[in-house]
């Protein structure tokens, strides 16, 4: 009996949802789709469901997870606090990987500044973070260092093409969603589906 084809791998994106991160958010989606992955994020979680359970479900459903720990500053709103969600979700991914060694979950850590992770999260000493410098070009470079797809390896130029086309497609998508933010479940789904279409046509 012929075995069913292997499904596309999913990548859990653990990234900050703020305006300053919009370009990198789009770049993450473009790059992830360029490698033929399906991006997943906590944006998908409906507010009514128990958030922590859904985050765990999402991590379990994904073969890979990418954790961007570049936002370690205090936010602007009072009371000023650092964001703990991203290191927390990284911890959940590490625990998931360690508790189920045969299941082969792999996690990656991104930072924008070299050597900062050793100070902000010294428990990860010995783990090399991928330093994207807070730029789209840097992120594409680092994604190419993380993954290799034999036979259909995307180039950084192809990732840029997907990214630029995705930016072009944003106005009608946002208008149709009645939203001015990228960080909603609907926009995330729409943008990811379009990025997958661009990737299928651009990456050969």
């Amino acid at each position: 009996m012929a075995s069913s084809p292997k499904p596309a791998d999913r990548v859990f994106l653990n990234i900050p949802y703020d305006e300053k991160f919009e370009s990198l958010f789009l770049a993450f989606i473009s790059g992830i789709c360029a490698f033929g992955f399906v991006p997943r994020a906590t944006l998908e979680i409906a507010t009514s469901s128990r958030r922590l359970d859904r985050i765990l479900d999402l991590i379990r459903e994904c073969r890979y997870s990418i954790h961007d720990l570049s936002r370690v500053e205090l936010d602007g709103k009072s009371p000023r606090t650092p964001r703990f969600n991203m290191p927390f979700e990284l911890g959940l991914s590490v625990a998931h990987e360690k508790s189920r060694p045969g299941k082969n979950h792999r996690w990656f850590v991104c930072e924008s500044r070299r050597f900062r992770l050793a100070k902000s999260l010294s428990d990860l000493n010995g783990t090399d973070p991928f330093i994207h410098d807070g730029t789209v070009a840097g992120l594409f470079r680092e994604l190419c260092s993380m993954f290799r797809r034999p036979g259909r390896q995307p180039t950084v130029q192809q990732m840029w093409r997907i990214y630029r086309k995705l930016r072009k497609a944003l106005p009608p998508v946002l208008a149709q969603a009645g939203s001015d933010s990228l960080f909603t479940a609907r926009v995330f789904g729409d943008v990811s589906a379009m990025a997958a279409d661009f990737a299928n046509k651009i990456v050969s």
Binding site: A8, D9, C33, G36, F37, Y64, F147, A196, N200
Partner: peptide, 9 residues
Amino acid sequence: QTIIDGRFA
């Protein structure tokens, strides 16, 4: 590098 063996989505 991690080698991807899944299908292209």
